[in-house]
Amino acid sequence: MSSRVCGRVLQRLQTAGSPPAASSGSWSCRLQAGPRCEPCRGLSVASRGTMNVFDRTMKRRQKNWAAALQESHQFDYLRDEVGSQVADRVYDIARTFPLALDIGGGKSHIAEHLSKEIVERLFLTDISETTLKQRRQSEIPTHCILADEEFLPFKENTFDLVMSSLSLHWINDLPGALKQIHQVLKPDGVFIGAMVGGETLYELRCSLQLAETEREGGFSPHVSPYTAVTDLGNLLGQAGFNLLTVDTDEVQVHYPGIIEVMTDLQGMGESNCAWNRRSLLHRDTILAAAAIYKEMYGNEDGSIPATFEILYMIGWKPHDSQAKPAKRGSANVSFGDLSKISQPTNTDKS
């Protein structure tokens, strides 16, 4: 497993200015613009024996609401960036894929960067029917299917390529989902995916925890739990993939303030949908969090950064044609003999 870390900065295309005055009611109104939250139910265990952390019904409603916004395209900057990175990894593989699957593809953020010479036919799935209706046009013949990422409605050994961009981090049973992806792939098929993970939104998480502890005497989780990059390789291996590649990419977006961060997360359909989430934040807590955010992480120009750690993964379904490691004990040279090998000396030819 290889690892690569790089970083980029995206500037949010939003007019920076002073935040609304404390007497204004626009702060609370903007935060309550999203879909109504259900009562907190806590963590539960599904019948199949896996942890049920996320409310998938709420996530569907969040994505439908976000896609129905009049200016929903202005919140697609992160998905566009990650989708182009996934497409670049597809181009790195020197072959043509007759049939591909994009899991949780939404508006087809990956396919718009691909050509018909690389992917001949594509199946696009998403949990949100409103998002699928806004699929972007591409030259690849595409079939849209309303399907949950946790239950893929496809037969075994169907696809030559499976892709996923920014949807797997809302899966309750990630090991099970990876096994399903492995199952629908043909032998020697490849899975290329990207998901949010690691220390994503640590600035927002810390600011809200400190503010809530100060104003309310305790805090609740307001940012979703994420998968660590150190666990991703093991999960792919347990699902049956080999020839693994895992790397991380840190994307930092600058915003005018904490309200804009929360508003954009809602517009992306990326609001927290964990069962143990709180349905609302008190106004005093939001004001305190905004001040803490700017004090701890603010830039000199008055903006604040929000960090997204993107985990990229590549895994292949085993096939006899793939390169395999030599059998244990087949080596004919000992590591101890390496010190006896003389290095060539430089001679002065002058």
Rank of each mutant, 00 (worst) to 15 (best):
P325N: 09
K294Y: 12
Q266D: 14
T347A: 14
Y312K: 00
Q252W: 04
N242H: 15
V229T: 14
P305R: 01
D264P: 15
T285L: 06
G269N: 09
D264Q: 13
T347M: 12
A228L: 13
D249S: 09
P344A: 12
E250L: 12
M262R: 04
V251K: 01
N272S: 04
E270Q: 15
D301R: 11
L311P: 00
L280T: 13
I310Y: 02
A323H: 08
V261A: 02
V261Y: 03
R328D: 00
G233D: 15
Y297H: 11
H319D: 15
T307W: 03
A323S: 14
L265Q: 11
T263I: 09
G302I: 06
A326P: 04
L235P: 12
N346P: 07
T345V: 13
S334D: 10
Y293G: 01
G233Q: 10
M268V: 06
I258L: 15
S303C: 06
T263M: 12
D249W: 08
R328H: 07
D247S: 14
M262A: 11
Y255N: 03
C273T: 15
D231R: 05
K327Q: 11
I310M: 07
G240M: 09
A291F: 01
H282S: 14
I259Y: 13
Y255S: 01
T263C: 10
A274G: 06
N346W: 11
A228C: 09
H222Q: 13
V246F: 11
T230S: 15
I304P: 01
D284Y: 07
L280Q: 10
F335E: 11
N332W: 02
T345P: 03
I259M: 14
A290W: 01
E300V: 13
R328A: 00
R328M: 04
I286F: 15
T248I: 09
T245D: 11
T345S: 06
G315L: 05
T227W: 13
N242Y: 07
G315R: 08
R277V: 03
K327T: 00
L236C: 13
G269K: 05
Q252L: 12
I304F: 05
M313H: 05
R278G: 07
I258N: 00
F308C: 01
D301S: 03
P318E: 13
N332T: 04
G267S: 09
G336L: 10
E295V: 03
A331D: 02
I341D: 11
N234V: 10
T285S: 14
E260W: 08
T307I: 08
W275F: 15
D231A: 15
I258K: 02
K317E: 12
H222Y: 10
G269Y: 10
P318Q: 13
A274L: 04
A326C: 04
Y255D: 02
D348L: 11
A326V: 00
G315A: 08
G336F: 06
P305E: 03
N332C: 01
Q322V: 08
F241R: 03
V246A: 06
G329A: 05
I314H: 11
A239I: 02
Y312Q: 03
S321L: 14
S339P: 07
S224E: 08
L338Q: 07
L311M: 09
S321K: 15
C273A: 14
D337W: 05
G240I: 10
K327R: 08
N276K: 03
G302M: 05
H222L: 05
T345Q: 13
Q322L: 15
N234M: 08
G329N: 04
Q322E: 12
M268P: 04
V251R: 01
G329Y: 02
Y297G: 01
L243K: 10
V333D: 02
